[in-house]
Amino acid sequence: MTTAREAGLISCHFCHNLNRMPVIEETVEHDKEQEMLCYVCNSVIHSRIPSSLNKTWALVIAALILYIPANTQAIMTVQLWGDGRPDTIMSGVLSLLHGGMWPLALLIFLASVFVPVAKLATLIYLLLSIKFRSHWRPKERTQLYRITEFIGRWSMIDIFVIGILVALVQFGNTATVTPGIGALSFAAVVICTMVAAHSFDPRLMWDAIEESAHE
């Protein structure tokens, strides 16, 4: 079993062409990483995503901080006959549940509460597993990463629901829907977790195992 890196090759992220790694001369400053281009598609290539762990940590922490206003502030305010009712993510789920619309309540709960929390927890777990050079089930951890990356964008559903409601419910003084700060924070949480999952390089999990095998 040889990895591309061990064979001195860099696989292009886009066209999967195998490019030869340049021979690094001792005199060249190592911290100034020069940009290499794929000779087929000209995209910038690297053996591993540069400072993948730092970027992912930063975005995960940003998402965790933004998660607080996303859940405590109103995502939208529904005004009916002059009576304003601010809704948070959780109160929105609960009112759907009380209205007997449990399939919708479940859907919104999964997309807005479960997926973001599970995604952040998974990313933190994967980051820690690299830090502690875990050997435990790398294949399953890679699959976990794949699911996390795939599912994250569905959390955007609540933002779109708000957009549609704001557009449709505009009846002067009778009924209006206005978006709140919570929606803004929640959208930022979703964007941060999407970019975080994208910055995470799953190959680092396998590197940790190979490196300790060589020791």
């Binding site: 990895t3 090759l9 696989s11 999967h16 195998l18 794949r146």
Partner: peptide, 11 residues
């Protein structure tokens, strides 16, 4: 015709 896996880098 070889590929390196984009998720674990195996050739």
């Amino acid at each position: 015709s070889a590929r390196a896996c984009h998720e674990c880098d195996l050739l």
